[in-house]
Amino acid sequence: MSSLKVRVEQKKLERAAYVLKCMAHPMRLGIIDLLEQRERLTVSQLQEVLKIEQSLLSHHLTNMRDKGILGTHREGKNIYYFLADKSISNIIACIQGSKTF
């Protein structure tokens, strides 16, 4: 047992827990899944697929942006959302590949 150790540094574990806590909502996981399929999407595009109120969607997007999960880019009157860290999409691959979900 003496050779057993935590292989990931503490700061990375803390960041992972912070991000996973933010993402622990079906709607937020859906947003990540959609942004994995398309490089970037507007609130209107996301709302059309997710079929939720714009105010609730904006709440989720703001929370995810504030936590560094999503980034934004403005073009004219449109704000596009994108995954700030592409490795986040690995979570969707884990969910899809899991037999227990």
Rank of each mutant, 00 (worst) to 15 (best):
S44I: 07
T42S: 12
D85L: 06
L46M: 12
A24G: 08
R40L: 09
A16G: 04
Q96N: 11
Q47D: 03
E48A: 14
I31Q: 02
A24H: 11
L29M: 10
D33T: 09
L46K: 05
Y18K: 09
G30K: 03
C22L: 13
C94A: 15
Y80W: 14
E9S: 11
I95K: 05
L35K: 01
H59K: 13
K21H: 12
L35F: 09
V19S: 03
L70F: 06
I79F: 03
Y80V: 01
K11M: 06
S2D: 09
L70V: 03
L13K: 08
M64A: 08
G30F: 01
K51W: 00
L13M: 14
L20Q: 01
L46N: 03
V6P: 02
G97A: 02
S44E: 15
K51H: 09
A17H: 09
A93Y: 07
D33P: 00
I69G: 03
V49I: 14
D85G: 02
L34W: 04
Y81I: 03
V8C: 13
T72K: 10
N78D: 08
Q37S: 14
T62D: 15
S2E: 11
S58K: 11
T42Y: 05
C22F: 00
V19Y: 09
K99A: 07
L34Q: 04
S44T: 12
L50K: 07
I31M: 02
T72N: 11
F101Y: 07
M27I: 09
F101E: 12
T42D: 00
Y81L: 06
F101A: 14
E14V: 12
I31W: 00
D66C: 06
C22D: 13
E53K: 13
R38M: 03
E9K: 14
M1C: 06
Q96F: 00
L41R: 05
L34Y: 01
L4N: 07
K99H: 09
C94S: 07
K77T: 04
E14N: 12
S55N: 13
K67I: 07
I88G: 03
R40Y: 13
N90R: 11
R74Q: 15
F82M: 10
I69V: 15
S2V: 10
Q54Y: 04
E53F: 05
T72P: 08
I88A: 10
L34K: 04
K77F: 09
E75Y: 12
D66F: 00
L35C: 06
E48H: 12
G68D: 07
K77R: 15
G68R: 10
I32E: 01
I32C: 02
